[in-house]
Design a protein around this nucleic acid. Structure first.
Length: 231
DNA sequence: AATCTATGCAACCGCGAGATA
DNA sequence: GTATCTCGCGGTTGCATAGAT
């Protein structure tokens, strides 16, 4: 680990110390997330912006769930991976408190080492992996699933006064699991689901502020990230 | 008890996409 | 139109530690 520093800029690398964590946490608390290029300067850290961002997202964020993966979560990961491939950030986006790195590590160290299932499943190919595509929807006729999507999508932070109790959070997780379960089931059964669009489908997003579907939300998820379309 | 090996996780790197000048 | 900057993602690496020998 080359003396924990970059050879020419004195930028620290490698494991983070408690002091560095404190500085970074204080900085984010003070200035909020984002503007990562300013974070090292603001926090007084000899770290690159990427390192700061990664540390915050994967380790310091207050809403992280660092416990064991539940059976429901594992099941969801397996099924979403079948649907999405290695889109770890999208998969993690459906698992409150989990990070893409967590999911990726879990997959690589646990799930991918399982013996392969009997070959009844259709193999993943370029053509059947669902990739997200930006779409727009009518203001007056939002898709029926959109309200449900929003309800399950909002992942509050510790600073959010509306943050639910742990049991409410579990309800959110359950709801999320159910919703994705339904979607996956439809997908697996070959049914047309609300997220399957042909290229001829023309829909428009609501204006920003209407349902807050446009742009990035406070979790950094874009609408594009939230919706998966068959293709 | 010492050594070797496997495993899990934190962190880094390179690249592509989007925003802005 | 394009050059530059920033962000975010996925792949990979390397360290720490648990378990096996």
């Amino acid at each position: 680990m080359e003396n924990n520093t970059n050879n020419n800029k004195g930028i620290r690398k490698g494991a983070w110390t408690k002091e560095e964590d404190l500085l970074l946490r204080d900085c984010i608390r003070k200035y909020g997330e984002g503007k990562w290029h300013l974070v090292p300067l603001r926090a007084g850290l000899n770290r690159c912006r990427k390192s700061c961002r990664l540390r915050w997202l994967n380790y310091l964020r207050p809403d992280l769930n660092r416990g064991f993966f539940t059976n429901d979560e594992v099941d969801l990961i397996v099924r979403l991976h079948k649907l999405l491939g290695n889109r770890w950030s999208l998969i993690a986006g459906r698992l409150p408190g989990r990070t893409a790195n967590d999911v990726k590590n879990f997959w690589n160290s646990h799930i991918s080492k399982r013996p392969p299932p009997p070959p009844k499943e259709k193999a993943i190919t370029e053509s059947n992996i669902v990739r997200p595509r930006a779409r727009t929807f009518s203001n007056s006729h939002p898709p029926a699933w959109s309200t449900k999507l929003i309800a399950s999508e909002k992942i509050p932070t510790n600073n959010d006064p509306t943050r639910p109790s742990s049991s409410a959070q579990q309800d959110d997780l359950d709801e999320c699991m159910r919703w994705w379960g339904d979607l996956l089931e439809m997908s697996e059964n070959g049914e047309k689901n609300p997220f399957m669009f042909s290229d001829n489908d023309v829909v428009r997003l609501p204006e920003p502020g209407i349902g807050d579907l446009g742009g990035a939300d406070e979790d950094g998820l874009t609408f594009d990230d939230n919706i998966l379309f068959g293709g």
